[in-house]
Design a protein around this nucleic acid. Structure first.
Lengths: 221, 221
DNA sequence: TAGATTGTTAATCGATTAACAATC
DNA sequence: TAGATTGTTAATCGATTAACAATC
């Protein structure tokens, strides 16, 4: 019964399955096997079965799983039908990009307002969402019972804005700043570490190029 | 000697240490212990030691590590001094946000040109980088030996654009589209799965809220 | 010297993969 | 029935954590 006991990697793969399955449905495909999903997404077929099992969806031997059933099971398991309201702070380019991602609502999150410290931004409407002054955050967040804060501010102010959010009842923070936030344990933090991501890519590429060189020029030349 | 043998989680933590250390340096701090790093970043101290060990940096018992030495060791290990040129495709809001991230150059990557399929975008300059028509990608990429492609296009065209990139000599792709790219094994792909990230956050929050309810209202009520 | 901190080796933990029984 | 596919249990693998020796 403990929903917490689902492995974190499984949790992160489910949305990937979901998008894959939605694309299958758009193409009109009705059935799919775990082996095929695994091949297309680069996951071991046994792993796919275990991952899908946690959602409670069941397949039929010889025919596989109904695409539609899997989609619904994943949506239910991830609780994407219960949409939670979110406030976004930092209406720069990244914030604007996120405001434009219509698909978040399907993933259980709706950005209902944006906030920015800059007077230039305040008053604008981005993708239909109003940009409000920071001062309005506390009162509105409490009144609307906002559960999710999206943090797209510069690293220097990320910690203080995060603390302000938590002080206003925010329980989960989606953090795009390249710092580790120091917050109470019960606050859920999800980091999008863009610098780690590009840094790792850059490192892997340089290692890859070196190994190509080494192959082309044997060490005893 | 096999640089590949470094655990992937270690690789992903190193940039996090790096940013933390740079902030310490800005504050004027010269020495730091593994225990302190671990506490501040939420990583076990033994883990911190192992992670730092792969960079070759050494500390001194009783005093710890020199902040400056650690920064240099991480930069060298991740090969961030060798800056690789990158082309970005898809100059929408997200692409624009990435073009504005000055810090990527410190992480070994420099975006030297952007491309877009829309005539509206072509010809513009974003953050000092020109937006060129897609047709120019192949010739320019080959002539400039572009190693990294940044994919900020809609999911529907991500696969074909990625294939085009690889066909032009691109060896590593930073993919922001919510699909698993099907490319030759030797191509390095780094996915930024935003929908997975927000979807997992949303799920954790709903589980968290349910457990709060359960605590407030015992099952045998 | 004593003690704090490093760095390494051993134990534990958890996720992935392999083997296999069940079933349509 | 035979065989493809599911779902589960066991084995393996790798990362994390614990224990401890080394050293300034």
């Amino acid at each position: 019964m403990r929903a917490e006991s689902v492995p974190e990697p499984t949790l992160r793969r489910l949305p990937s399955y979901y998008h894959y399955l939605v694309r299958l449905r758009e193409k009109g495909q009705e059935m799919i096997s775990a082996a095929q999903i695994g091949e297309d997404l680069g996951v071991h077929h046994t792993q796919v079965r275990k991952d899908l099992a946690v959602t409670g969806s069941q397949g039929k031997p010889k025919v596989g799983h109904r695409v539609e059933d899997l989609i619904v099971s994943i949506e239910n398991f991830l609780n994407w039908n219960n949409v939670t309201d979110a406030f976004l702070v930092g209406a720069g380019h990244l914030g604007t990009a996120l405001l434009g991602y219509a698909g978040f609502e399907r993933a259980g999150v709706k950005i209902v307002a944006a906030f920015d410290a800059s007077a230039k931004m305040v008053g604008k409407k981005i993708q239909g969402v109003s940009v409000l002054p920071m001062e309005k955050f506390p009162d509105l967040a409490r009144r609307m019972h906002i559960g999710i804060g999206i943090l797209t501010v510069p690293a220097e102010v990320a910690q203080e804005v995060a603390e302000m959010m938590v002080g206003c009842g925010v329980q989960a923070i989606w953090n795009f700043a390249p710092i580790v936030l120091d917050l109470p344990d019960e606050v859920i933090v999800e980091n999008v570490a863009l610098y780690s991501s590009i840094g790792v890519l850059s490192r892997k590429l340089s290692v890859h190029r070196k190994s190509l060189l080494a192959t082309a020029t044997p060490p005893n030349s």
